[in-house]
């Protein structure tokens, strides 16, 4: 039942994405309202479906939060991206951003629904996952990932806009984008959410590992890649206040950072081996 709803959510997000892209072209307020309404509707349905999946896991006698395998994490990932995006849209009225952020959520959901690598069934928890750390670790990591997804979307927008400004071009689609300084501020803001969340995610993971395996840090590929991501965003935060690194270079670091996020999240499980293999099935 819940997987059926998630498939519908995938189409809704794809629809929202298309309307957001239309808004980019037409700049009509009503288009943006429709885009927001579609996306919000999809998000509400997704929230309901996540709750339903949680409930169904109890019906099946397993009873665990829907955050335990790749399918569930992809669903949760796109859920947090949309949640964070809707908050930012509401706060900053930056409807343009939707075209750059909703694709991440739509792709996440589509990958979860379509890929044969992703098992949709509710699976019981293996012993290592039976812990109260599960929810706090997963929520903080994915809030971080979602913030980084948004910042990556803004960074792409920023680089396009900045080049446009530097060439003193007038007109065109890019002319209607918010100024590069507004976008720069927004990159910083989203990373300012993502970085503490990633830090807490790494710390809760370390605390959990210490509880389950007796060591808080073992240079496991998942741990190492989360640290690599942390290093890159730390470099971004310092680049932003360093002459010669501000602007496009810092924005590029934020995009590289998100590539590292994706590798930490998906690449490690799909390509490398290690202790943290729950997310691969």
């Amino acid at each position: 039942m819940n997987t059926h709803l998630f498939s519908i959510v995938t189409f809704i997000y794809l629809g929202g994405m298309v309307v957001y892209i239309c808004y980019l072209a037409f700049r009509n307020q009503w288009v943006s309202r429709v885009a927001t309404a579609i996306t919000l509707g999809g998000w509400l349905l997704q929230t309901f479906a996540i709750g339903l999946r949680w409930y169904e896991s109890y019906q099946l006698g397993m009873g665990h939060a829907p955050m335990s395998n790749l399918y569930e994490s992809l669903v949760f990932f796109s859920w947090t991206i949309i949640l964070l995006y809707l908050i930012i849209e509401y706060k900053y009225k930056l409807y343009l951003l939707g075209a750059f952020v909703t694709p991440f959520a739509a792709m996440g959901m589509a990958y979860a629904s379509i890929s044969s690598q992703v098992n949709e069934t509710i699976q019981p928890l293996v012993p290592a996952l039976q812990s109260n750390w599960l929810i706090s670790h997963v929520i903080t990591c994915f809030l971080g990932y979602a913030a980084f997804a948004v910042s990556c979307g803004v960074s792409i927008t920023y680089i396009l806009k900045k080049r446009h400004e530097d060439q003193h071009k007038k007109g065109g689609l890019l002319a209607s984008f918010p100024s590069s300084s507004v976008l720069d501020e927004l990159i910083y803001k989203t990373i300012a959410i993502g970085f503490p969340m990633l830090s807490i995610g790494i710390i809760t993971g370390a605390a959990w590992a210490n509880y389950a395996w007796g060591t808080y840090w073992s240079w496991d590929p998942k741990e190492t890649w989360s640290l690599i991501t942390w290093f890159i965003y730390a470099a971004f935060l310092h680049a932003r206040i360093t002459r010669g690194w501000r602007g496009i270079r810092a924005a590029t670091l934020s995009i590289i950072g998100f590539v590292a996020v994706i590798f930490t999240y998906l690449g490690v499980n799909l390509l490398l081996s290690g202790l943290h293999s729950y997310g691969s099935g």
């Binding site: 240079w219 590929p221 190492t224 890649w225 640290l227 690599i228 290093f231 890159i232 730390a234 470099a235 310092h238 680049a239 206040i241 360093t242 010669g244 690194w245 590292a260 490690v268 490398l272």
Partner: peptide
């Protein structure tokens, strides 16, 4: 210098990849 900080952070990120590819 903050440039050294950025250089070291990027270096740490880059070399850390080695140990995730070559089994340790």
């Amino acid at each position: 210098s903050l440039k050294l900080t950025i250089f070291l952070l990027i270096t740490l990120a880059a070399v850390s990849i080695i140990g995730t590819i070559i089994p340790q």
